[in-house]
């Protein structure tokens, strides 16, 4: 009897956690294994496997003249987008947590970029930056920043130096709503009496924020930022829809490059995916170390 009940108890976690494991294994891990395997195969354009390829796919990938700059740009892209997103979201969460008339409706507006498909948001931004009819260019012209429509100066997406900031802007634009909302939810779990106590102690607003609000927000912030790191790293529609990584590869990140390669060489593209994956793991581990995740989230 005792033996059996111990056996049952050992199975108990499976009843709670099992379905999640099955779903993850089925939908996520299986294709991952497939991807890693493909990176060592020689595959024709239409997916016919022509045999093993050793590490040739990786050799070719690392020999791509643009590989190093793409990886560097990816890192900058992730750090810039996530950093800006977090900073802006912290401010917006405070703002939208204040009571003011119409707050509810203002919050709904905030959610629009999140509710809309990222692909469509990217397409509309490209439309708004069109050199001939883009509304952003029209505003720039009417404010005196631009001489005329239609020329190279009205074409920020045409040059990598001006395109990257816009791409980052759009990525921040679509990441902020979720992050802000997560932080608002985080703020709402902070009991109000803590503030009252602090105020009675005569602490200043800034001090209250840094001593109380921010530490209590950290779990929510950590989760939100980590989610952002991975989403931004893998983000594909923004750059794809706005510049296709052009001119040349000068606005490509590793995910874009992987997609470009997919049309040429599935094996090399799979190798890029694997490298990409390795990079996300490293980034994540670094991030977790920095934020001391274990003590706060798990």
């Amino acid at each position: 009897m005792r033996h059996r009940s111990r056996g049952l108890r050992a199975l108990e976690p499976l009843a709670w956690v099992g379905p999640a494991i099955v779903l993850i294994a089925l939908v996520v891990l299986w294709p991952v294994v497939e991807m890693i395997r493909s990176s060592f195969l020689k595959i024709s354009k239409f997916g016919v496997v022509q045999g093993g390829n050793g590490t040739a796919n990786y050799d070719r990938l690392f020999a791509e003249p643009d590989f190093a700059s793409i990886m560097g740009r990816t890192l900058i892209w992730v750090v810039a987008v996530v950093g800006l997103t977090v900073i802006i979201s912290l401010a917006l969460a405070q703002l939208f947590n204040q009571r003011f008339p119409g707050r509810k409706i203002a919050r709904w507006a905030l959610i629009a970029p999140w509710a809309a498909s990222v692909l469509m948001t990217a397409i509309i931004f490209r439309w708004m930056l069109d050199p001939e009819v883009g509304v952003i260019n029209m505003i720039r012209r009417d404010l005196g920043f631009l001489d005329a429509l239609g020329g190279a100066s009205a074409d920020p997406l045409g040059q990598s130096a001006t395109a990257m900031p816009w791409l980052i802007f759009v990525a921040v634009f679509v990441s902020v709503p979720f992050t802000t909302y997560a932080l608002i939810a985080g703020l709402s779990t902070i009991p109000g009496d803590i503030y009252e106590a602090a105020r009675m102690d005569g602490a200043s607003k800034m001090r209250i924020y840094w001593a109380i609000t921010f530490p209590l927000l950290r779990p929510a912030l950590t989760v939100a930022a980590l989610i952002n790191v991975m989403n931004v790293f893998n983000n594909f529609p923004i750059i794809w829809a706005m510049t296709r990584g052009q001119p040349g590869y000068s606005t490509s990140t590793s995910t874009i490059f992987m997609y470009i390669l997919k049309n040429r060489d599935i094996g090399e593209s799979a190798a890029m995916s694997v490298v990409n994956f390795g990079m996300v793991i490293i980034l994540t581990v670094v991030f977790l170390k920095v934020t001391r995740w274990r003590s706060e989230v798990a």
Binding site: D130, A154, D155, G158, Q159, R244, Q246, P247, G248
Partner: peptide
């Protein structure tokens, strides 16, 4: 000399045709 579509390396045919159709 600025005689073409700006930054041609990033411009798609569809857009340029739309501009031609609009007389630009």
């Amino acid at each position: 000399a600025g005689l073409t579509t700006p930054n041609p390396g990033t411009k798609d045919r569809k857009t340029v045709w739309e501009d031609f159709a609009a007389g630009k």
